[in-house]
Each structure stands twice: as structure tokens, then as C-alpha cells.
Design a protein around this nucleic acid. Structure first.
Lengths: 158, 158
DNA sequence: TATTGTTATACTCTATAACTATA
DNA sequence: TATAGTTATAGAGTATAACAATA
């Protein structure tokens, strides 16, 4: 498997001799710190493939739900309809996704991966797995699963 | 304490009958989902005070490190110098932060909270604590601390 | 009337690079 | 030469609103 160089780390988790006040006690800020670190590594690993995290998740969702409509994809990704157009345009311009006519609803497009899109996704998925293992390398498998489970329970809606 | 209404939730964590493929197994995506939910709630709670998460963290850091220089603040927040200027301009325009002359280095500014800034920060901190408790309400105290500890260990640098 | 996708537009966030004034 | 801050500018990303076609 290709060796992907780790992120160049522009962001210092803790600047020496600086007090972080209440930030150190907040889940939200711990999340932000982690997210910056993860995003940097993702970008370093997938950027050379011209894949952003949003493009990746869009392709994964399309692959897992062939012939998904744009509106649904937007709901899944949490992006407005107009934003989905941009994302899909980008994927289509790269030849990774096609818009096909919906059989019964002439307003809607159905999204599918092209053969090239599937090939790229396989490669990207490998890199993303390596990336995910890298950013959670200081966690045991149990801790990693625990972390995901805890994150899934965050949110203000009980 | 004022009752802050919870976030309006535009983002659905799971859309019914939709497969999420590999996304469900990734720390990075769990983080993203959680982050969207948390950000929405933060915005709903602090937005009325004209405080963004970045303004909040900047003020906390300035409060915890009076007479901090802009460059240092940028390193702490993980923002480029030019970005710090924008943030500080916004805080200064609201009368919450002042730029004072550095005694020995005429190039640098020292940042301090104004009296009004300190008052606002006290109020904001209360709301942020309520917000943080709200988004982690489905976690026990132990789980919450555990989550923060796990998040702090994420990152590609061993 | 409501919905799907599109366009136009704008706003936020952030970065790079060039600039100034110091050091 | 290097550094602190500023400005200009541009590029993502995202949202709202108006619109066309269709339901």
C-alpha cells in the first residue's frame, strides 16, 4: 500500500506557557481541536487525489445508495440543495458521477458512480482508512470504538 | 439563569433507509456529525449575543493571558496572522477588547479585555457551560470526561 | 400549490502575498 | 534580514431567494 505522508501540522494543540481557561473543560473545544488535526491529515492524504472530505462522503453515499436523488443526498450530507449542485457538478466534471433521468419524476436526477468513480473510490477508501488509523493511532481498538459511540450520543436533542 | 432554546436542528444524523457505507466506521465522520450538531446549538445559544465560537475562544484566551500579542493569539487559535486581525477588529469594534502599545516592541500590540468585555465574557461563559451540558446531556460525567480525554489523544503526531 | 433542481448572489472564514514599520 | 501587524485579494464553503419545469 502506498505510504501517505502525515499532515504537516500547522496547528499546535497547546502553546507553551499559555492558559486556555475554560476551553480545556469544554467538549465543544476538544472537538474543534481534534477536528483541525484530523482535517489537516485528511487533506494531506486525499488532497493529491483531488478529493475533499465532502467529495469523499458524497461518493460513499452515492455508492451505498445507487440512483439516489440530489435532494436526498443533500439531506444526508446536511447541505442545502444549491450546495449539492456544486458538489455534484464537481464530481461530474471529474467524470466520477453521472446524473441520469429519473423514470417517473422528470424534475429529479438520479446519481450514480461511473466506472472511473468506483475505481477512484476504492483507492480513496484505502487512503481514508489509513488516514483514520493514523489519526487514532494513540487509541486502542476498544477506545476507538468507544470514542465513536460517545460522539454518536452527542447532540442537544434527547 | 436565562433559558436558552435548543438548536433548531437542520441536520439529520441518520436519514431513514439510507446507507452510510464506510462513513459509519470512521472517527473523522463521527466527529463531523457531532461537530455539526454542536455548532448548531452553540450558534443558537450565543448568536443572540453576537458571539461566534471563534470570538468566544479568542476572548477566553485573552482573559486567561492578559496582554497577549496578536501573533501568539493566532498560534493558539490556529489562525493566520491576517485572520487574527479580522477577529480582533471585530472584538474591538464591539468594545470588548483593546489594543495597547507594547512597552519595548513598537511593532506589537497587546490585547486586553475591556470592562465591558469582561462582563460579556462572564455571561457568555455561563451560556457556553449550559450549551456544553446540553449537547452532552446523554453522557454521564465520567463519559464526558472520557470523551474529552479521548479527543485530546487524536492526531497523527505520535 | 408544492417540489426538484438551478442560478444569482452574498456572506463567512481563511489563506497567501505584498506592504509598513519596526527590530 | 527577520518579525508584527496590516491590507488586498482570492478561494472555499455555504446559505437565501428567485426562477423554471414538473408534480
Amino acid at each position: 500500500m502506498a505510504r501517505i505522508s502525515p499532515a504537516p501540522q500547522r496547528f499546535e494543540r497547546r502553546v507553551p506557557d499559555i492558559g486556555y481557561g475554560v476551553l480545556d473543560e469544554l467538549v465543544g473545544y476538544a472537538l474543534r481541536r481534534a477536528q483541525i488535526a484530523i482535517y489537516e491529515d485528511f487533506e494531506a492524504a486525499l488532497g493529491p487525489m483531488d478529493i475533499t472530505s465532502q467529495r469523499f462522503s458524497a461518493m460513499v453515499v452515492i455508492a451505498a445508495n445507487p440512483a439516489i436523488a440530489q435532494g436526498t443526498l443533500g439531506r444526508v450530507l446536511g447541505v442545502a440543495r444549491s450546495g449539492v449542485v456544486q458538489v455534484v457538478n464537481g464530481l461530474q466534471a471529474r467524470g466520477w458521477v453521472t446524473r441520469e433521468a429519473h423514470g417517473t419524476d422528470a424534475r429529479a436526477w438520479l446519481l450514480k458512480l461511473t466506472a472511473e468513480g468506483r475505481t477512484i473510490l476504492v483507492k480513496a477508501r484505502r487512503r481514508v482508512h489509513a488516514h483514520d488509523a493514523r489519526v487514532s493511532q494513540r487509541l486502542s481498538t476498544t477506545e476507538r470504538d468507544q470514542l465513536i459511540a460517545l460522539l454518536d450520543r452527542l447532540g442537544s436533542k434527547p
